[in-house]
């Protein structure tokens, strides 16, 4: 190849690269998408995270931990004035409330009374699925009770609900990536399907927003998050609880205040 032809080929290559760059010209840009709150809380100046129906599972007191976490998150974000009061023992209150409602007026009432969720009153029940929570949920519809709580705390927005945090086990095929090397020593990553025993936790909180002025439910929101680890991995339940709560906190906060979601998009020419 002569010097001239090399020069021609070089120029042509440069032109081709420039043309390709022009064809695929793009710019990445950071954006912040504002998401409007789901609930209009302008009528409230104070918020009371009252407590949650939650059982005793895996060394995590889901009631206390959820109350503590939500209060601190709301304080950090400056969303309304957070009332710092004792957490309501909702499970006990629901049990008492249920007892009052189904007080046996006749001796054979036992035969028609729905079975009580927990026989041993000194031991907190263990909740493994949604059905276990059902016997206590009437407390959320008790307008008089919540109105009374509202009056006690100067009519705030009350947040209550139920938190199911339970262990789970699952086995089956999972896809994972594996490094392989070809005869020339070149590395590549290929997907491999492997049978695995996995265990972890499921977190299913239901947040109920109650108007402290009337005792009526304004909004209900249910989330579900789960995490699974290799069966041999020992992960503390509390770490898993916080990891799962961390995933759904933005959505919880977005119920009360506008959120900005950061991301990157591509602008084209």
């Amino acid at each position: 190849m002569t010097a001239r032809s090399r020069k021609t080929v070089g120029s042509f290559s440069l032109a081709l690269i420039a043309a390709l760059a022009a064809c695929t010209s793009y710019t990445e840009i950071p954006i912040e998408t504002p998401i409007q709150p789901k609930l209009d809380v302008s009528a409230f100046q104070r918020i009371f995270i009252a407590g949650f129906i939650a059982g005793a599972n895996e060394d995590v007191d889901a009631n206390m931990e959820t109350v503590r976490l939500l209060r601190s998150q709301l304080r950090n974000k400056g969303i309304m004035r957070v009332i710092d009061a004792d957490t309501l023992p909702l499970l006990e209150i629901a049990k008492q409330n249920s007892g009052e409602a189904t007080a046996p007026p006749v001796p054979d009432q036992q035969a028609v009374t729905p079975p009580q969720p927990e026989q041993d009153p000194t031991k907190a029940p263990v909740f493994n699925d949604e059905k276990d929570l059902e016997p206590y949920q009437h407390i959320f519809a008790n307008v008089a009770y919540w109105k009374r709580i509202g009056e006690e705390f100067q009519q705030p927005l009350i947040v209550t609900g139920a938190v199911l945090f339970a262990p789970q086990q699952r086995s089956g095929f999972v896809q994972r990536e594996q490094e392989v090397y070809d005869p020339f020593g070149r590395r590549s990553v290929v997907p491999v399907r492997t049978y695995m025993e996995r265990k972890g936790f499921v977190l299913r909180p239901t947040f109920i927003f109650i108007d402290g002025r009337t005792g009526e439910t304004l909004h209900t929101e249910t989330f579900r998050e789960e995490i699974l680890y290799n069966a041999s991995q020992q992960t503390p339940a509390l770490s898993s609880y916080f990891e799962l709560m961390d995933r759904l906190l933005p959505a919880f906060l977005n119920t009360l205040s506008a959120q900005k979601i950061k991301g990157t998009r591509t602008l084209l020419k």
Partner: peptide
């Protein structure tokens, strides 16, 4: 790719009401 990222946010914004207990 832009549209897929947008849809994730849009779906979240549209998720107005949670399920009733």
């Amino acid at each position: 790719q832009n549209y897929d990222l947008f849809k994730e946010i849009n779906d979240r914004a549209l998720q107005k009401d949670g399920r009733q207990l």
